[in-house]
C-alpha cells in the first residue's frame, strides 16, 4: 500500500444541514461531500453552509481522523472546531492544532 497525500483544499460536490441529527451530534449538523484536487471524495463536517454553492472552493483538514471543511480564513476555522462535540479543553486543543498546522503549512498543503 502506498500513502498518497492530497492538497488540503477542494470543491463542494454537495452539502446539507441536518436539523435532527443522530445521537452524539449537535443540531444543526452541516455536512458536505468535497472533491479534493486529485479526485478523492470526502465527507466533511463544517461550521455552516451559508454562502456555499456547488463548486465552492473550501479548505479541508483532518483533526483526530475527522475531516472538516471551512472557508479559508482562520476565524472560520476556529468557529468550526468550537462547535464540535467534546469538552472545552478538546475544542481549544483542536483550534490550536489547526492554527499551528496552518502556520507550518501556509500554502494549505498537508504534510
Amino acid at each position: 500500500m502506498t500513502l498518497t497525500t492530497f492538497p488540503g483544499y477542494g470543491q463542494i460536490l454537495s452539502f446539507t444541514t441536518l436539523h435532527s441529527p443522530p445521537k452524539g451530534f449537535s443540531s444543526p449538523l452541516h455536512l458536505a461531500l468535497v472533491e479534493l484536487q486529485g479526485g478523492a471524495h470526502l465527507f466533511c463536517h463544517g461550521a455552516e453552509t451559508r454562502g456555499l454553492r456547488l463548486g465552492t472552493r473550501v479548505a479541508v483538514e483532518s483533526i483526530d481522523a475527522v475531516y472538516y471543511f471551512s472557508h479559508l480564513g482562520l476565524a472560520d476555522r476556529a468557529r468550526l472546531f468550537w462547535r464540535r462535540a467534546g469538552a472545552g479543553r478538546e475544542k481549544v486543543s483542536a483550534i490550536l492544532r489547526s492554527a499551528i498546522k496552518r502556520l507550518r503549512h501556509p500554502s494549505g498543503t498537508e504534510p
Binding site: L13, L18, P22, G24, F25, L29, L31, F43, V66
Partner: peptide, 12 residues
C-alpha cells in the same frame, strides 16, 4: 460516523 442519515444522503 459523520452523522449521515438516509435523509442527509438523499439531500446531497
Amino acid at each position: 460516523s459523520y452523522g449521515a442519515t438516509m435523509p442527509a444522503l438523499a439531500a446531497l
